[in-house]
Amino acid sequence: MTNSFDVKIGINPISWFNDDLPSLGRETPIEVALTEGREIGYQGFELGSKFPREPHTLREVLSRHQLDLVSGWYSGRLADRSAEEEIAALGPHLTLLEQGGAKVMVYGEVDGSIQGERNVPLFKRPRFYTDEQWRRYADRLNTVARYTLSHGVRLAYHHHMGAYVETPEDVDRLMALTSDDVGLLFDSGHTAFGASKTTFSGATPLDMLTRHIARVCHVHFKDVRPEIVEIARNRQWSFLDAVINGAFTVPGDGAIEFAPLIRQLRDHGYRGWLVVEAEQDPAVAPSLAYAQSGYRHLRALVDRATAQLEAA
């Protein structure tokens, strides 16, 4: 066990406005999200579509609210293009993160992804079918990860519903084929939802975190409502329909136990961000109330884990 637990609690603006489905929270200004987030106690924000994309302006906006830049989603297409093409494409985003002080880049593969398709059921997501397809993708990812790391920003691979790497088994395979330069973004909600079992297993997120703890460089914490996940599977909903109907929620409001996840991170010496990222309709789940609830739940667990460490 390590003698410190150096983590910060941040949030993704998706609690206020949703980039995949802009109709959710379209009317909410960025200043509302930043003001409320800071008042709650969050120390930083991930990027969203309403954030400035010029480094100096972004730093000004965040510093005005005494907030740090946590990271930012990058829509990658390595399934279809070369590492060199990807490196050229991600240049402006990498510069924004680097100059903003972020240490990780959230990499999400969107080639063929159906995560933003309202009328496409989840089972139609893209897949790698051969060993060669997996190896080629992993090799490209290794190259891109080495490049971002040379700029002081580690690639944090985001396994995601509706994409090539969705299930815990997909994550296992990708981690086995890639180097340590490729970091893993552990997402509790997508892990639970993406499990291949037909019924929710509360142990699934902890099992996957334990297997890949050495590669985890970023954490998204969201909870799941298993009854909604089950309906989404049985009725062949799209990812966005599952979101709209409440598959996800903030930590402490669903079925995932976060205390064991936090203890695992603590005991392995994780240092970085714990980010609340819960896709919901703010008209049904009011942004301020749910962001506050998620923060309080995580804050209490982190404080308890820290106190246990200091007392040991």
Rank of each mutant, 00 (worst) to 15 (best):
H218E: 10
I213S: 12
P260D: 02
R154A: 04
N234S: 04
T249A: 03
K197I: 01
T204K: 12
P168L: 05
D241K: 15
I256F: 03
M161P: 04
T204P: 03
G202N: 11
H151I: 02
L185W: 06
A138M: 01
R266A: 11
E257V: 07
I262L: 14
D180T: 11
L184C: 03
L174Y: 03
L265C: 03
G246K: 13
D172K: 06
A145L: 04
V224P: 08
V243Q: 10
I231N: 00
A195N: 08
F239Y: 15
E257G: 05
A278F: 07
S196K: 13
V250W: 05
E277S: 06
E227Q: 14
G246N: 00
H160D: 00
R215I: 07
V229I: 11
Y157K: 02
G252C: 10
D170W: 13
T178N: 09
V224C: 09
F193V: 15
V275Y: 13
R146K: 14
R235Q: 15
V224T: 13
T178K: 06
Q264L: 09
F193N: 04
F221K: 04
G189E: 01
F200H: 13
A156P: 11
S238V: 11
L265F: 13
V276F: 12
S238M: 08
H158S: 02
T198Q: 14
A195H: 12
H158Q: 07
Y147K: 13
R211T: 09
D139E: 15
P260V: 05
R146S: 10
L177G: 03
E169N: 09
R173N: 01
L177N: 00
F193T: 08
T204Q: 10
R233H: 07
M161G: 13
S188V: 12
T204I: 11
A145D: 00
V276G: 05
H212Y: 10
T198L: 15
E277G: 07
A259Y: 12
W237A: 04
Y147V: 10
R146F: 10
E227H: 12
T148W: 11
L149R: 15
L209H: 09
R140D: 00
V171S: 03
Y164D: 01
A195R: 02
Y157Q: 01
P168N: 02
T148I: 14
V171R: 08
L209A: 12
S238P: 12
D181C: 02
D187C: 04
P251L: 02
Y157W: 08
F221H: 12
T199F: 07
H268N: 14
A176Y: 04
L174E: 05
Q236W: 04
L274I: 14
L149H: 12
D207Q: 09
G202D: 08
E230W: 01
P251V: 07
D267E: 13
M208N: 14
